[in-house]
Design a protein around this nucleic acid. Sequence first.
DNA 1: ATGAAAGCGCTAACAC
DNA 2: GTGTTAGCGCTTTCAT
Lengths: 339, 339
Amino acid sequence: MATLSEVARLAGVTTATVSNVLRNTQKVKPATVQKVQEAIAATGYRPNLMARALAEGKSSMVALVLPDINNPFYPEFVRVAERVARHRNYFLMVCNTDERPDIGRAYLHQIAGTLADGVLVLHTGISADDINELKTRRSPIVLASEEQVDLANRIPHVVVNFHRAGEIAGQHLLDLGHQRIGAIVGCGLEGMQLGRLDGFKSALSAAGIALAEPMVRNVSDTVAGGHEATDSLLEQHPDITAIFCTNDLMAYGASQALADRGIRIPQDISLIGITDIQLARDMRPALTTVALGIEQVATISINLLLDLIENPQHEPTIVHVPDPVLVVRASTGSVRSGT
Amino acid sequence: MATLSEVARLAGVTTATVSNVLRNTQKVKPATVQKVQEAIAATGYRPNLMARALAEGKSSMVALVLPDINNPFYPEFVRVAERVARHRNYFLMVCNTDERPDIGRAYLHQIAGTLADGVLVLHTGISADDINELKTRRSPIVLASEEQVDLANRIPHVVVNFHRAGEIAGQHLLDLGHQRIGAIVGCGLEGMQLGRLDGFKSALSAAGIALAEPMVRNVSDTVAGGHEATDSLLEQHPDITAIFCTNDLMAYGASQALADRGIRIPQDISLIGITDIQLARDMRPALTTVALGIEQVATISINLLLDLIENPQHEPTIVHVPDPVLVVRASTGSVRSGT
DNA sequence: ATGAAAGCGCTAACAC
DNA sequence: GTGTTAGCGCTTTCAT
């Protein structure tokens, strides 16, 4: 692997000149540029990014730490984050913690400020204390799409109004006349998805309907979790007319459980999720859901991180993404007509 | 961000000693180790991995370049690759090319040998020429799970017997009595998934059935692609009794198209895929498929890459993974009884 | 417009 | 055991 000085020697100039050719083409005499470029081509030279990073004090890499790359939400997020990062000349390094906070912490310790210029942390169960401990070193860390925002911990956040999402879902079911509704709540690494449930409950109670505790099921945030929770719900409350899931993946599981029992959606039971992942569009019946705007959240999050890298702030920045919006598809219908 | 020399100064030793404490604890006197560790704790020191990589000539990072992180096959692959890499003390850097070969090439040029000690390339449409051009520099590149293996290009390969997978799928449908079968073939970045189709055809012709060309559909390797292809197939060949898809994602799309038309699986039409992604298990009816053994392929691939990094070979290594296996679920049934 | 030289933070001989 | 001394490959003043 050719180095800068080999190129320099071959071109009959010094490394400084080659370095200049590599970025500031204007400073160098055209004839020299020519010679240097020939030498680069001849040697097949490519800059050693590690050495450059050391010298510049900046790696142009950012890390995205996430809990479960198999949960389709994350790949969708990664795709847009990677694209934005690339356009801003950063590499995106995806770190999967496999749902283990200790792995997330290890990544953070090793990477933040040494391999990556900044890191975006997504639901990995890493505590604010862990992050603040790392904050001593000058390398921004931003938390995206957190369930609950703690302003006291002084960490930059991108906040999604999950409460509102739950409320919208609840309101939609109420509008369709549903009153006996089961709720399936995911429990990710950061605990129950309580904001979403609270929003849902508040919509119901505003309409004078209290959501009985036994009609709530807490399960893992997976297809299997949604399936089990639905089975349990159906056994104890066969009279429910709708199921609310705090995310689409569990709603997909719920739809399978209903299909397995020959229960029709939405004629017998309506189903609503939150997020609007691709699967929500692809499944049959297509899922009514509350779209969080993955593309928007990802774009805003990665841009915030890159902005903070290039332009450090003293005050922790909190960015709110636009409110979620209802997307009506085929999985919800009126409680009476069954349409 | 504290550096080695600050730690050294604080501990009253030199950087060499601190460096030794960081790896070869045995060489250093316990009392010194103690002092150094206190200094490390006091300063919150963490090694600068870029500097270390420069000095060691090895970054302990490997890159995984893939075309579409949204295709569920890849996250499943990534999850196991990351885990294996982590256990072998490497970071895994996931690079999504968004189906664009030029992005893949750019990643390779920038990363191979400078940021990463090696790179694993998955179906990204990067040509062997591109890779061989990079090969000058000493940093292994391995191609995993290629559709077709070209031994002449002298690049390490992990090969999957796609032909056999197609054959197994064909045989299964034949065993169930199917004769009029539609085939949906994905066209990824590396062209049609021809090995799989060839295997399928060879099973049929061995049984004396020729697969008519018009019953083959080439489409993009997505849910939507599978859906469209199924619509087209059904319109021109309403009498088919089974559909073979070269992967599960398209089979999922096919199942939606069938559901949309009120066609029952497997009573009216049987459906079989290839790969065995999670979705194949989750969908209803659960998909009969030919399992490629994602976990196995990923493990073998990443291990090969790491082996080559730690132990360079002159001859290009070709590793074959075990043959695919049939997984019978609910989407296929006998052509007569419709069971 | 180009060269000389210092240094980014760390590792690795080799002395002592 | 611990210190000294070179680099790793690049960028970046500062001279010339």
